[in-house]
Design a protein around this nucleic acid. Sequence first.
DNA 1: CAGTGAGCGAGCTTCCGCTTGACTT
Length: 898
Amino acid sequence: MSTLVIVESPTKARTIRNYLPSDYRVEASMGHVRDLPSSADEIPPEVKGTKWAQFGVNVEADFEPLYIIPKEKEKTVKQLKDALKEADELVLATDEDREGESISWHLLQVLKPKVPIKRMVFHEITKEAIRDALKHCRTIDEQVVRAQETRRILDRLVGYTLSPLLWKKIARGLSAGRVQSVAVRLLVNRERQRLAFRQGTYWDLKATLEKDKNPFEARLITLRGIKVATGSDFDESTGQIAAGRNVVLLSEADALALQERLTGKTWTVANIEERPITRKPAPPFTTSTLQQEANRKLGLSAKDTMRTAQSLYEQGYITYMRTDSVHLSEQAIAAARSCVEQMYGKEYLSPKARQYSTKSKGAQEAHEAIRPAGSSFRTPQETGLKDREFRLYDLIWKRTVATQMADSRQTLISVEIQVEDAGFRSSGKRINFPGYLRAYVEGSDDPNAAIEDQEVILPPLKVGDHPNCTELEAIGHETQPPARYTEASLVKTLESEGIGRPSTYASIISTIVDRGYAQMNGNALVPTFTAFAVTGLLEKYFPDLVDTGFTSRMEQTLDDIATGGVDWLPYLRKFYQGEEGLETQVKVRESQIDATEARTIALEGIDAKIRIGKFGPYVEAENGDGVVTASIPKDLTPADINPEQVETILRQKTEGPEKLGIHPETGEPIYILLGSYGHYIQLGDAQEGSKKKPKRAGIPKNTKVEDVTLEMALGLLALPRTLGVHPDTGGKIQAALGPYGPYVVHDQGKEGGKDYRSLKATDDVLTITLERALELLSQPKAGRGGSRSKTKEALRELGNHPEDGEPINIYDGPYGPYIKHGKTNASIPEGESVEAVTLEKALELLAAKASTAKSTKSSSKSSKSTTAKKSTTSKAKTTKTAASKTTTKTTATKKKTS
DNA sequence: CAGTGAGCGAGCTTCCGCTTGACTT
């Protein structure tokens, strides 16, 4: 007698294996095992050529889906089939959500078991929970499966009808979809707001006051009893004060005059207000909030966050990282509370256990919140984790522990000070009891809001006091356009609208960047010309599909299908077929849409036409005797193109390149040209009809075109520059400019190959010395983004071998986890968990195995990645001293109680 | 890398959501 249990992830399989009797075999399906064919080569020959083959859905036969097993899943399916042969019972234990239910159903279709089957669901991975779940199995819920299938078909219909329309009307290879097109539209809409934004300017006064030698600051709030205008009083589209606002707008002259008039006058405290407030800790992490916070606090991309979290999960440090639930298990709450008591003391404990409920739309809650794993939490220091993994675990640990901490109690203090007819205000904040702030402060997307939760001390004041004014500054402000989306804020918006799922947030961003809809500019997502063209078309002809409400309405229907309230077939028919159906709509639109118009982007202030062509965006303009076209450089976006640039691009095309000077030796002209990859330098003219291209050289990224001198151009054209020879090897050392920027290279001869190092920002490829090059070459290679792509991550590090000091680690292999010491590998015996292996035990196992080779030297430490602290500077100008205020992001306090 | 912005015209591009492959220790 044996039972085969199938779960979705191998890590989960490994864990629950330990909680089940020995005659239970646990295997993983690795997610879905079947899907619609994704591309032409997956379409079976028998349906190829039919009208509906490209969909993989037979729209003429009640939307019958054509399921195939993708190539990469064949191996998994075979393993599951083999495992099933030896079982006399099958338990399907995939996640309890729509996709999980569907995976179980597909497994049944593929495996065709002849033994009894059961559907089991569990929400906590503990021995009790799993044993209990095993006793309460059910059958597969066919209606939930239908809901999933409907979702799958609908997404396919949307994606595979709209995308071809874009190929015909705008450019080949483009894509549209229920999720990505809304995401792109969000970016485009924000960029339109930014383009329509008109800056407003206002001035105010800042006073530095003193009471009993304690200085504090106050801001001008009212004048003659009327509120002084600030940024929020402006209309973003005009740069003027919004209609209906009763405010005084101060110009620079007004502010300076007032400053003059108030100097030397008596300041009087008119009113003091104290208001107590309490603040509650943020809920524990979901995928979305983890990505947001890791982006804000650690500067990680959504992808990096997920990669790191996956590794922590596989090593048993955290619970599952793809979840939309903020639910904490009893076990987790108890563990967090015990952490609070031990590390911060009883007074910091929340009086009652705090449980959060999920608010986001369409949450399916198949898992717990993301938290430290286990029934007692390892502190970050105890884990022995390093770098990125440490920092992410630390973040998760703090956030989770903070949820069970007491509220923070604070007092807001507002002091009004009158001088003549001007009212000033000073705001203070007292933290009476920090509570959860001791462990965790949530980050913010707005750098100006980051000072929240910091104490602002005011001296003791009472009404009627006359504080002394030591300085009075007039400060100018400019209103700022709405900020671009970052990965974090886009994920936040998508999640709150119920668009996308935890497993897809990171890939949505990759998709829109890969398809050329957006570029990363620092932390900001900037939409491209293509994004403008595509969004324009979709909004005009398919407004419902790119509306943020489309997904929530679909989700509602899917829920109704799952509970039996709605029939899936009429829903799909109405969506796709008939007069109003998508199929007809696309056909009708296809004849209506003018392709030239669709690929043209109108931007305010730009007279030339901007179009999307086969090779990317280009400008087109009338020019006396015809039409001129010229490519727009790749990194230029609608946001930063201006009439001058358009003119330069076109002029260069018609009048030839700008001449920088003449080469002193050859007498050839040197030009600066603008290509699709940016500016470059060219020596001599291109020969008509000749295959030979003139010598060209790029301009380093951090150099502005205007700053390029003839001397610099000569230097760049002369690259690669030989610096000398290496004192040890005699190999040649050169400096040059490559596709990834400036570098130095050491030619170590035939045997050694070439050793490359990138230059640092402070180095100049034209002037770098041999000494500096040798210094760079002596340092270890930086590696890409700190990830060790080639070397495998250890599951656990046990310590060093007592004899040779070499590290002993546990890695994951195809036959389960194994212990590695130098070149000796030993499997962990069946039934023993990775966590349970001690160094002593490992030495035993290695000794038993080590009848063959002895280890050789192999040790290299990974390089450290540095994180820059972010800071923002206000745009303030002042008449007296430069009043630049710096606010730094608040980070979680790291203090420990003794 | 450093152009181009027709046509010929077969076959192809494309969606969203689940999940990690790999090696012969």
